[in-house]
Design a protein around this nucleic acid. Sequence first.
RNA 1: GCCGAAGUGGCGGAACUGGUAGACGCGCUGGGUUCAGGGUCCAGUGGGGGUUACCUCGUGGGGGUUCGAGUCCCCCCUUCGGCACCA
Length: 827
Amino acid sequence: MEVSYDPRIIEAKWQKEWEQAELFKVREDPNRQKYYLLEMFPYPSGKIHMGHVRNYAIGDVVARFKRMRGLNVLHPMGWDAFGLPAEAAAIQNNTHPAEWTCRNIEYMRSQLKKMGLSYDWSREIYTSDPNYYKWEQWLFIKLFERGLAYKKEAYVNWCKTCRTVLANEQAEGGTCWRCEGEVTQKLLPQWFLKITDYAEELLDCLEDLKGWPEKVILMQRNWIGKSRGAEILFPLDGSEGAIQVFTTRQDTLYGVTFVSLAPEHPSVEELVANSPERSKAMSFVQRIINQDRVTRTGEGQKKEGIFTGAYCRHPLTEELIPIYVANFVLPEYGTGAVMAVPAHDQRDFEFAKEYGLPIKVVITPEGEELQPDQLTQAYEGDGTMVNSGPFSGMPNREGMDKIVLKLESLSLGKGAVSYRLRDWGISRQRYWGAPIPIIYCPSCGPVPVPYQDLPVVLPAQVDLGANAGSALPECPDFVNTSCPACQQPARRETDTMDTFVESSWYFARYACPDYSAGMFDAPRVDYWLPVDQYIGGVEHAVMHLLYARFFTKVMRDLGLLKTAEPFTNLLTQGLVVKDGAKMSKSKGNVVDPDELIERYGADTSRLFSLFAAPPERDLEWSNRGVEGSYRFLNRVWRLVERYRYLFEREGDQEALSPAEAEDLKLARLTHATIKKVTEDIEKRFHFNTAISAIMELTNYLGQLPEEIEDRRPAEAVKDAITSMLLLLHPFAPHISEELWHRLGKEGFLLNQAWPGYDPQLLEVEETTLVIQVNGKVRGHITVSTDAKRAEVEAAALAQERVQVYTRGKKIERVIVVPGKLVSIVAR
RNA sequence: GCCGAAGUGGCGGAACUGGUAGACGCGCUGGGUUCAGGGUCCAGUGGGGGUUACCUCGUGGGGGUUCGAGUCCCCCCUUCGGCACCA
């Protein structure tokens, strides 16, 4: 009897069957080719949203597809469990962050399971697990021992709302990445990781990341921000020492009319010491330093500065050059000091105009003369060097190298490189994070916690509400300890690590989540890494993906990993939007995955999110579209049920080859569909067109007569249906599995081989060509594939409509593109 | 300001190497089934013109290359993303 499609029953049924059969569990197998597929793990915020549904649906298509293609697929899932929202929620709900997080994980895991995702749950990790962060602390100490983790007092981005420090990457645009509150500057001792040591390699390796989107590579390249130039010494006048500047325009060296220092520059205090305006200068410096970064570096900020009273000497001309302090000079970039060339740098130009400093032209553009007093803005382009001593008359590009050589010969400068990338500040003044494993001893200083004492466990008993900041300093049992070196009373570090530290190495831990003898079990981690395909949001293009690349290189240098890059291929999926805006509670345009799955089932939810747009694009949510996907699955169900009798027929068991199985048209369509779906998944990740191809096949099948008596067409229909279920399985795993079994077939679909296609069947003996006359389509012609060019030409020209358009004209050319068209040029 | 991506029917999107623009889906129109609604099935669906055959215009705008341009080149407009005093 015919049974109708009920996703609620079949989805629960197959999820249970798959789990009982441990279908998704994988083991290392050196004899099989591995494929490591990873989606960015979620923060356990409470419940999954549509972005998760989309991300994991995309990943599951690839995982199931690769598995059916015979690869040994690792497809794990876990939880980015530390972080501020847990703390905020715990205070608000009078609970503990661990409890809140754990509850969320429980719920979200159940949601993911309801989606029928093919995760190996035996490898699940959560980063707040001491067995996980133990190895993070272990790695931190390794970094500390190598000088790659260090503490310094620094002006840091401080979020008043979150009461914590933020990395530059997390404070973009002067607002906190998490709460969007204002970010100000604060001087604090902070732990940093020396990512700048890896700047060059992080940049170089970008070129080898062929499987990454250009956009992401470009964003990382810009973020690292390498500039080539020179470091030049300007000897101080009347005292020892020199001001070192960094410039990318050493060709303009002869145009220097002053030098500008950042207010934070270490020489400032000494330089103003003898100035009559000393106190005025220092109060200016203090005012600028205390200014928060947002205002200071804000758009259109006025150029301000003050004369220090000191002078230096031009390294080549020995002219006297005044030294200024200027608000626009950044202390962290280059040397914190710049040579000012008002004629050829817009900032210096504005500053010179403001303070009446001289402007000296040293580069002239092609066929033009620049008059310093007539300039309305700096000329920053290329040209010929003038007023530049022995370099005058030279193209400026050439002069760049020549000037470096000259400076090097005088020991007054050298070629140099500067990066925009800064070291990664990882200290967070929060409770819910991995403790930094350092002990401060009054006599020994900062001492790492001995390896055998790890993990430094986050204390469970804390009073979160007592202090607006971190609860850890208020926790005497945690803070008070003894020095591992001298046994004297000492204090623990109470900062915890930025949660981006956990996500910088989790992908490697999935290879051996249970391993307790070390951070990684070498044979397993070497087998699985690198991740073959990583999938997640483009919002992680800089922060997470850069940190993970950095950690991978560090771990490689420590001998923990053999790979230098963590993610071979990267897919950045677009946002899920509704009514033109990203889904968010504040906009009130969220669609709840729970309700969706309850109403239509996981297969429909997955199918729609895959069908509505290709993965890298934003997906416009449409409730009507969801119904369309649901209708399609119902059609598939009815179609298979309609032809189920063909599979139950006794007798003709002997298989026919697809070519023998009439109807040939259907057989061809089936194989063309297999080809299309396979290539769309494998080469392009264009699941929307893959699904549309399956729809076309089912549409064709739907038009066929209900009763098929003859054996040959029946075989073609059976082959088409069998293939269709295999092709559909990565997108809609439950319904395809159910129908597969309803046809009396054995085994899970995931263990079936992905269907192949017969290329011979796709070769056609006749093709229809388009006939164009002067670029316009004027007819069609069906010819045999091996027809001679001349025959095709003659046949095309003989067509009545072609005759109409060529009458009285001269045929100038006839272009024949085999399999495509005949193009006739007539004048 | 600099760098990058994208603009295709009423809508989401196809068109992969320059070769029939609009696959597939949504929506809409007409019809069958039904007491009715829903569901389902059939037909149609870019604009303009014509009784059909068909003609013509059409991929943000303007130019160009080509037998042929959504696709390549130049200029411009709009939207989105990234960076933003980086010397």
